[in-house]
Design a binder for these strands. Structure first.
Lengths: 203, 203
DNA sequence: CCCTTAATGGGTCGCAAGTTCCTTTAAGAT
DNA sequence: ATCTTAAAGGAACTTGCGACCCATTAAGGG
């Protein structure tokens, strides 16, 4: 007897399989908005997607699997870094993007779900780390450009500057649970920029 | 028939009741270290504490209740802000404290558990917000002192400076899931301080 | 030291999440 | 168009968390 060496959905990915996936991911986001990751039930997702729950269990395994798949979708859609001509403009664009994502109902719920999933699922943790690593690396380029332009000191660690912009936003969102608005984003950019200019992020 | 107007454990808090609470909170921390918040089962906690599971359900209601109680304990033990004579020293002490807490097996597991609980429990969210608000406010004093000493510009928002120190640490811990070490803490302090000196945190 | 009753503890029960088995449908190759 | 079988769907079954009931123990007041 031949052992099953492939995952469901990989051999005949077209037609119904694709439609099922789209419906399930759609339903997952809806559920995340309404109930959050802790309340994400495979049952509910299947029912809302109009799909058998067996299928959802077989293809995604559990809530974490759903959320990981959702994030790979996000990763594909994520925009490249800005290029406004000044670091300030670029970092503001970055902060605005983060703020927008976090504030958006569906996107925000999805991001928070992945973060929650990463605390209890190995694969989700890896996926999350790689997602943000990619994202931070992508935007670090605006700092490197600024260095060549002479706006920031030689040797400035671009990734750390980008992290410094996002950190206060996520810190308030997840830890102190204070409201996050444009003022926070703007101040994060100003602080990161001032620190970078002073050479606090030089390797 | 008289309705029960008090919570279990409030009328006879001495003796056994106190011993049960200590044993349960102890067991909860052990479980958090081994399984994390998502794997915190009332059953297991009761068994490890050598206590009936009915008691645990009655007094704490659920995993979130356990974790909230654990945090109130933490709040009582939390140390007052440092006073080394310089903002740099004080903020470094703060960063070291955060790093130490996060790195410590039991403390770190507890903190992460509360953060996780806050994403799915209203009371845990309130408790978490108040805990950090108190903590940040306490340490903001070192910035106010620095302003009076002339180390930092007039009008500097002390709470935002303190947040800026913690933010990168928690950001790495929860979001990007990168390792957190002294280098990260030190750089966070340097960046926050440079930004503060440049007036980025002036209200 | 005794008495009242707060608080604990063991056992049982129900429900909902998750698993398994088998049938039905429709991709994709010929 | 036809055929093979990947993939989905339906339903019964299992499991384990959380709730409830009632007996037992020991605080704390007299």
């Amino acid at each position: 007897m031949e052992q099953q060496t492939h995952l469901a959905g990989t051999v005949r990915p077209g037609g119904r399989t694709a439609r099922v996936r789209a419906a399930v991911l759609e339903a997952t986001q809806d559920e995340l908005v309404e109930r959050g990751f802790h309340g994400l039930a495979m049952d509910q997702v299947a029912a809302r997607a109009g799909v058998g729950k067996t299928t959802v269990y077989r293809r995604w395994g559990g809530p974490a699997g759903l959320v990981i798949d959702l994030m790979t979708e996000l990763a594909d859609q994520s925009a490249p870094h800005a290029d406004t001509g000044s670091v300030e403009g670029d970092l503001m664009a970055n902060a605005a993007g983060v703020l927008g994502a976090v504030a958006d109902e569906r996107l925000g719920a999805t991001l928070q779900a992945v973060i929650a999933a990463a605390t209890c699922d190995e694969q989700a943790e890896v996926a999350l780390r790689e997602f943000y690593l990619r994202r931070v690396r992508e935007w670090a380029a605006v700092v490197d450009l600024a260095v060549t332009r002479g706006e920031l000191p030689e040797g400035t660690d671009g990734m750390d500057v980008v992290r410094a912009v996002s950190a206060p936003i996520y810190y308030r969102l997840l830890v102190t649970r204070e409201p996050v608005d444009e003022r926070v984003a703007e101040r994060a950019v100003r602080a990161a920029l001032a620190a970078a200019r002073a050479g606090a992020f030089v390797r």
